[in-house]
Amino acid sequence: MNKLLRADNTRMLRSATFRFGLLSLLALLLITFFLDGDKGTLQRTEAGFQSLLLFLPMVCGFLIILSVGAEFGNGAIRNKLIVGHRRSHVYTSWMVTGIAVTLISFVFTAAVLAVTCAIDGGIIELSAKTLVTLSGVILCSLLCNAAMCLLISVIVPGAKGAVLCFIFQEALFMVFMISAEEGGIAWVEKVSYFFPQGLIGVVSLLTAPEKPWVYMLCSLGAAVVFFALGIHYFRRKDLN
């Protein structure tokens, strides 16, 4: 298992795709931050924060799907199975790599947002408790997103999987946005507990959700379900 982790992490973190993903995040955050030039630092940071919830899962999802899809596409996955690695270990290693990518991307975007905010002229005072709670809720939803993307990438590997993931994430975002404008639809609100896109309408930079642990539990629960489904499917899948 450690061998696979080392191999997968090294490949992912050294890949041009990963660097390109981080650069894309940087560009998207800066564009969002400076889009409304006439607003104050707080409003612009809030907009940047909201865009983090939109772009981060998308970029992380793409990175996971492209990485796993590459192994299916070029046949490198065979090199793991032929030499005796268990399928459950291969899948778990992908999941851990996906989590690592998510964590690094989250820290990167949070740092970019903080630096941008500081350069813009105003340091926003946030309570440590709010910051930690927000980080926890967002990270848990991002883990759920990573597990979902990994499941998609194994069922539909490669570019098709990436397109499917993009459509699904966009659809989630649209549903939550429309629901927020309509004044909140009960079932949509419940689904929003699980996905980062759903948090856009729920959390703000200045306020943590009322019951953060509900969001965390729902997201982590969904992540575990996606992970279990993925392993179950992958262990029975015939590979070429």
Binding site: A16, A70, I82, V83, N240
Partner: peptide, 19 residues
């Protein structure tokens, strides 16, 4: 799985990372 560690294979197309 221990036995498989003693084998190698090239199945159909070469399994390589092109980049």
């Amino acid at each position: 799985n221990l036995m498989r560690q003693r084998m190698g294979a090239v199945v159909e197309t070469p399994s390589l990372f092109p980049y």
